[in-house]
Write a protein that binds this DNA or RNA. Structure first.
Lengths: 221, 221
DNA sequence: CGAATCCTTGACAAGATTCAACTCGGGTGG
DNA sequence: CCACCCGAGTTGAATCTTGTCAAGGATTCG
């Protein structure tokens, strides 16, 4: 299969018009407001999706993994920028082909609606995180969402690969790199997580993380 | 027309199955995780959509006005709660009817996708606001988005009705009521806005608000 | 093995929250 | 009709969480 994880059902006519593209780390896939000519799916690696302010501040609105789709556009332009967080391969599909195919195959349309709905629900949740949770609560929420994602894909929920840097996590959680680092250290000292290489996390006390993430009074951290 | 603003095109079969419901102020329309049996559209008034934490903190993820749709659900349950901010009338449409109609009429499906896409783009923008903007920048962004909405609907862009309370604005912007009030007062003192009744805003210096909203150094505030 | 990048930690500063008092306006009931 | 009452808004002072600035340590990769 050319573009793994693209369309598990009989819509593989999509794969016929898709092109695989390889990226190094920290490469721009496309920029916000660029003409939205293609839709992408992640075949391997991690992609970050982000918005920036004129002075350089940035908000990462999501990390995308294998099988995820990107390329949301409005009025013909992309709504956000996309860059690779790791080396990655993506599938590129011309927008027009998708659109004509959607007009032809309502099933694809329905699938796109389902995917977009899912993304919207995730965005709502992230607004709660960004607007109302403390730094500790944000980091705990992030670790749990990483674990859930891993489990949903059949991976381990306990020992996780965390391929993004502290700065990227910070830009995702609306914090600074230093705050993220401090909180991860605090969790480690409290025995809540393990950080062997700094990019591998073990969730040792998921119960505590869960309480922290919801703002309940923690037991011993 | 029973449900104004519902479907401007030939999909008025929807209005046939819709019921109009009237609400007083601060009434619950539905709760997060309730069984999602209906989709709603706002006919008049303002509805707030929100998520809450166990300890009562809440994040308002959007204010909905006439013509807007609500009732996003995942796994059969609503993703957020909805309450009225003012007296309001809503149209209620059974979920099942919508779904069977969508299967029948791809045009409706396409329209739902377009609406959801729009909402997702707005959510991305709000994540930037919540994650990376200062309190002043948030309030400036909010005022501008109110003005744009009013203009898009053919209303005035200068003198705006702001029917929600300071506390609601705060819960939308991830701030406290006091901070919102202070910043509005500061804008007023600086001649950037007028607040005649506290619920009517005049954007006197939109240029300054624009710069503030993007984080550029303001001229004189 | 050296350079670059990433991560960690500390000290201090700043922005926003908390707590509290007071004002304003609209509606209600005596 | 007017006083009172309640919700909403405003403002001040103190506190606290997080950001900023800075230095040093660790890891990775050529």
């Amino acid at each position: 299969m050319v573009c793994a994880g693209l369309e598990p059902d009989q819509l593989d006519r999509l794969s016929e018009i898709a092109t695989e593209v390889a990226f190094a780390r920290n490469q721009v896939v496309f920029l916000e407001r660029d003409a939205g000519t293609h839709l992408f799916t992640v075949t391997s690696g991690v992609v970050r999706v982000l918005k920036t302010l004129p002075d350089g501040r940035r908000q990462i609105t999501g990390f995308l993994f294998e099988g995820d789709i990107l390329g949301l556009m409005l009025d013909g332009g992309y709504v956000y920028s996309a860059e690779t967080s790791t080396v990655a391969t993506l599938c590129r599909i011309p927008r027009k082909k998708i659109e004509s195919l959607m007009a032809e195959v309502p099933r694809l349309l329905a699938r796109m609606l389902a995917l977009t709905t899912h993304e919207l629900a995730a965005a709502q949740e992230q607004m709660l995180v960004l607007g109302r949770k403390s730094a500790k609560e944000r980091v705990a929420s992030f670790l749990l969402s990483l674990a859930r994602r891993s489990e949903r894909r059949g991976g381990p929920g306990g020992r996780l690969d965390m391929p993004m840097t502290r700065a990227e996590i910070a830009d995702y959680l609306g914090l600074t790199m230093e705050t993220v680092s401090r909180i991860l250290s605090e969790f480690r000292r409290g025995g809540v997580i393990g950080l062997d290489p700094p990019q591998t996390v073990s969730l040792l006390r998921r119960d505590i993380l869960l309480k922290l993430a919801q703002g309940d009074v923690p037991v011993g951290v």
